[in-house]
Design a protein around this nucleic acid. Structure first.
Ligand SMILES: O=c1ccn([C@H]2C[C@H](O)[C@@H](COP(=O)(O)OP(=O)(O)OP(=O)(O)O)O2)c(=O)[nH]1
Ligand SMILES: [Mg+2]
Length: 952
DNA sequence: GGTCAGAGGCC
DNA sequence: GGCCTC
DNA sequence: GACC
């Protein structure tokens, strides 16, 4: 134990970094915990504005957000009383109408050029706006409207317009509709749509997407056009220039965006294709649909750009009522490429069959000729069994070679195949998939809904036979065993065994070894110098070109390799280079974090097939690592970091040794690990599919499930999404998310957040000078960059008035000023004391300012402590604190700390007993009740909060 | 082996 | 009620 | 995946 060493080190680090005793988790871990010595200054709602942001304290290096909080400023209250021309004669205009065109035409001449570009197809969404019935926001719009979602989710085909007792007015437009503050029941967010309705139809005669030459796609009897990858090849030929276009009016911004996007994509796709053609053709991806020269890579390169917020976003919540459904390992989740040259015609066809279809095909073969080598029975162990096999892939995509092989084996072993799950006939469910996948296949919400007499077993059962319970893989659906309860240990072992066998347990299968060899010859990343392409990027990408940047990105190439995982939106080009392992972020372990983050994102992208808890652990580790300022050199070093245990430590030390190896000759055991461990894992996981899904998840409003849905619908690029390919329908928020993809996925300098707040606060105070307006989130924690602006508003009701309705007026004013530009989510009831708003904003006076995410939260005065606590975060800290509250028998939320809360176990969100408030007015109060020493905002990053109640 | 927060908005 | 986001 |  070298804790002393560590301890001393961190102290030294802190001093060196000028961090006043950072109560790192490391410290708390190795040091006797003592009360925080940090001054408990008045963190409770400061009453006047006195702090000014220290001028660019962190300016020097590219600032890593987490590197070092700016201490003095975390009160977050800065307010420039001047600054606002408090005029504002109100002429009601939709800010969106007003501001956007200006953006487009005035701000960027570039766009004008775009209009000269061939207009490919117009978007389905746009078309849909022209439907006569303005009332139908539903999908009938899309001409090709298909229930892409054949799988799971039963969306009522015709969604009745939400019962909506909600009325929300927010946008000035609302007022226009109903003169004067009268809350015209507003159709909420159909804004984009409603706007377009006003416009005359956009008439476009577009060149039909040419069918790609057969050579180009190497055959592809794609069974379902909806999922056809080929569509991706519709690119506007450079031939089809202006001729056949005929525009009835000026395209809207949205349309322009799409054209621009499309052109961009075309350009880059071409470049890329030239570059990687040879490589790309070496492998095909049978799992995704067709042997075509892979569009995936193209896109991906686009924006693996930086899909998600660098600073980690909390794990997706299992909206589960308790009981974690332990998602089993998703075995080899991805289809393996198979050598093209081996692909005979028939085989190619097979490769496009979905699992069910493949099984049906086998049955057909069997019926025709039982001696067909494909289906001829070789073994007897499965005779009498009627079996459905569930592989890791979704129902609606092509069966992987592995899955096909297993169906084949089942039939060869004498089983009767059941291509679909029929509880009447099926005797065994054999699967090699994560639990959520299995549920989807079986169309049940819980495995317990599967008749208990039908065992769910792993593939080992088919190979080795024996009692089903010996091969059980889901604890929540144990095979029945009369007079014999399955022993606990066994199933567990099995499950774990499966887990370990993730990548290659397929000795018994056909080609599996062939996996992705075109992995990435080079590991350079982001070659282009930031100084060089930045100005350009900013100009282009500021408002309406979500993909503008990808031009540069593609030029830089690397992201295509899927390795890019910038940990900070804007200004980090994290070094993976051995030489300067320190990187611009100043964190010597940045490259480890990069690796882990990458792996995490992959797990995250797996969504339902992945393990959310694993993702959460990764997040915790990453956050903890940000506080580690000494290079982690060995396994032992790594093990000292909180949330790092055997597996991660191995990865971390591995990451390091990988660099060492390339730097110096450093043979030894580590070398071996290098070749078999982490890197390979990333390669293995980092399939084109996952990379694409990661890109999709970068869109605001798109998470793992939706991303997968889009992917399964055949979408491969953001452009596909915009076009509604595969029948997908975007929400309004998602459209905005695509439009400002880059903006939203980048972080702003703290100074910009300050500037925005300085614009906003006076507007609020003008409405009611007694409001308390605070900037929260990462800003209050003193971060150098902010992912968004979080503003909390409350008001002391001592004078008998409160802040109801304020938010509505504030938003209206901000819209008018051009500060708030788009809405993402409106308050359920803006006249409630508690209301939430989400949207985009920008600095209106700066022509090239980016869109920034902004959130407002209003809360009753009495809850302000709890709200302050909540909204200050960070998220991990909140969760820990709430977890601790639970363990102490309390429940903590943004309204207060409660005792005696009882929830409905079958519907967790429902409270059988809404307990009693114990503390809520000040943060200190809550800390105290939870027996946690008060932590100033800047110290709440991933902080360990565990001090057990009642001693122990 | 059981944990790993709790809530609001949109669809 | 699922999914996404804070 | 990690912690208790
Ligand atoms: O899952 C979450 C996400 C956020 N929060 C709280 C803490 C967080 O600090 C605050 C604001 O959220 P936001 O997403 O803005 O995070 P941030 O801490 O402000 O970081 P960023 O700089 O990315 O905005 O809301 C949670 O409690 N749980
Ligand atoms: Mg924030």
């Amino acid at each position: 134990m070298q804790t002393m060493d560590i301890d001393a080190f961190f102290r030294e680090q802190d001093e060196h970094m000028n961090i006043p005793v950072n109560s790192d988790e490391l410290l708390t871990r190795f040091k006797p915990k003592g009360p925080m010595e940090r001054p408990h200054v008045a963190f409770a709602l400061p009453t006047h504005n006195d702090t000014v942001d220290p001028p660019a304290v962190l300016k020097g290096g590219s600032s890593n957000d987490e590197v070092e909080p700016i201490r003095p400023a975390f009160f977050g209250l800065t307010f420039c009383p001047h600054q606002s021309k408090s005029s504002m004669p109100h002429s009601e205009r939709s800010p969106r109408l007003a501001s956007n065109p200006v953006n487009v035409f005035a701000m960027r001449g570039v766009i004008v050029e775009e209009t000269k570009q061939p207009i490919p197809r117009t978007t389905l969404t746009r078309l849909s706006a022209h439907l006569p019935n303005p009332q139908s926001p539903c999908a009938p719009a899309s001409p090709t409207s298909i229930d892409h979602d054949t799988l799971k989710r039963k969306q009522s085909p015709t969604k009745p317009e939400k019962p909506a007792p909600k009325k929300r007015i927010i946008d000035p437009r609302a007022e226009r509709d109903s003169p004067e503050g009268v809350p015209a029941a507003k159709p909420s967010s159909k804004q984009l749509k409603s706007l377009t309705k006003v416009l005359p139809p956009l008439v476009l005669n577009l060149p039909i997407a040419p069918i790609p030459p057969a050579a180009d796609i190497s055959s592809s009897p794609i069974e379902d056009a909806n999922f056809s990858v080929l569509i991706n090849k519709f690119e506007p030929q450079e031939t089809s220039t202006q001729p056949q276009r005929e525009v009835a009016r000026q395209p809207t911004e949205y349309e322009l965006m799409m054209m621009r996007v499309k052109q961009r994509q075309q350009e880059n796709a071409n470049k890329k294709r030239h570059k990687h053609k040879a490589v790309a053709r070496q492998a095909i991806d049978p799992g995704t649909a067709g042997p075509s020269t892979k569009p995936d890579d193209d896109i991906i390169s686009i924006s693996s750009s930086r899909p998600a917020s660098p600073e980690i976003n909390p794990a997706r919540k299992p909206s589960k009522p308790k009981k974690a459904t332990n998602a089993k390992l998703t075995a080899r989740a991805k289809p393996k490429p198979i050598p093209l040259n081996q692909t005979v015609a028939k085989k190619k066809q097979e490769a496009t069959l979905r699992p069910r279809e493949y099984a049906e095909m086998l049955l057909e073969r069997q019926a025709q000729d039982p001696d067909d080598p494909l289906v001829r029975q070789t073994n007897h162990q499965l005779e009498g069994c009627t079996v459905i096999y569930i592989g890791p892939e979704m129902e609606n995509i092509a069966a992987s070679p592995l899955t096909r092989g297993r169906w084949k084996k089942l039939i060869q072993y004498g089983a009767t195949l059941s291509p679909v799950f029929n509880p009447e006939t099926v005797t065994h469910i054999v699967c090699d998939a994560a639990e959520p996948t299995v549920r989807r296949w079986l169309n049940v919400k819980k495995l317990s809904q599967v008749p208990s007499h039908i065992p769910i077993v792993g593939w080992t059962w088919a190979l080795r036979g024996g009692q089903p319970f010996e091969h059980a893989i889901f604890p929540n659906h144990m095979p029945e065993i009369e007079g014999f309860a399955p022993r606990k240990g066994k199933e567990k072992d099995l499950a774990q065994q499966r887990k370990r066998s993730t990548p290659v347990d397929s000795e018994d299968e056909e080609s599996d070894s062939e996996r992705r060899r075109h992995e990435r010859p080079s590991k350079k990343r982001r070659v282009s110098s930031p100084e060089q392409d930045k100005p350009r990027v900013q100009m282009l990408n500021t408002s309406l070109d979500p993909l503008a940047e990808f031009h540069d990105i593609v030029l830089a190439d690397l992201r295509a390799e899927g390795l890019a995982s910038d940990s900070e939106g804007e200004d980090s080009n994290s070094a993976t280079t051995p030489a300067n392992a320190v990187s611009s972020t100043g964190n010597p372990n940045q490259y480890i974090m990069d690796k882990l983050q990458e792996l995490m994102e992959l797990h995250e992208a797996k969504g339902a097939d992945g393990d959310q808890w694993r993702v959460m652990t990764y997040k915790k580790v990453l956050r903890a690592l940000k506080n580690v300022h000494r290079p982690i050199k060995t396994y032992e070093d790594a093990m000292k970091v909180p949330y790092v245990a055997e597996k991660t430590a191995k990865k971390a030390s591995l990451s390091r040794s990988y660099l060492w190896r390339s730097n110096a000759e450093d043979p030894g055991q580590i070398m071996e690990i290098v070749n078999t461990g982490d890197l390979q894992r990333i390669k293995y996981e980092n399939t084109p599919e996952l990379r694409t899904r990661k890109v999709f998840q970068g869109v605001y409003g798109v998470g793992p499930m939706i991303a997968q849905k889009f992917y399964n619908a055949g979408c491969r690029t953001l452009l596909d999404l915009v076009e509604g390919k595969g029948g997908i329908v975007l929400t309004e928020a998602q459209k905005v998310g695509i439009q400002f993809y880059d903006d939203i996925n980048s972080r702003m300098p703290r100074e910009e957040a300050q500037a925005l707040f300085d614009l906003i606060k006076p507007v609020a105070l003008k409405i009611d000078p007694k409001l308390e307006v605070h900037i929260m989130g990462s800003f209050r924690r003193g971060k150098a960059t902010c992912g968004d602006i979080d503003i909390m508003i409350t008001r002391d009701p001592a004078d008998g008035k409160d802040h109801r309705g304020i938010l509505h007026h504030l938003l209206k004013a901000l819209h008018k000023k051009g500060i708030i530009t788009e809405d993402l989510a409106l308050p359920e009831n803006p006249f409630d004391e508690e209301a939430i708003y989400r949207g985009l904003c920008r600095l209106p006076d700066r022509p090239d300012s980016k869109r920034r995410r902004i959130d407002f939260l209003t809360i009753p005065w009495k809850c302000r402590g709890a709200a302050l606590l909540y909204y200050t975060g960070d998220d991990i800290f909140n969760r820990k604190m709430r977890y601790k509250a639970n363990k102490m028998g309390y429940s903590l939320n943004q309204k207060g700390l409660y005792a005696g809360v009882v929830r409905n176990p079958s519907k967790w969100s429902e409270k059988t007993n809404t307990g009693n408030v114990i503390a809520c007015e000040t943060e200190e109060e809550i800390f105290a009740k939870l027996e946690i020493p008060f932590l100033p905002p800047c110290d709440r990053m991933g902080k360990d909060v565990s001090v057990y109640p009642g001693g122990s």
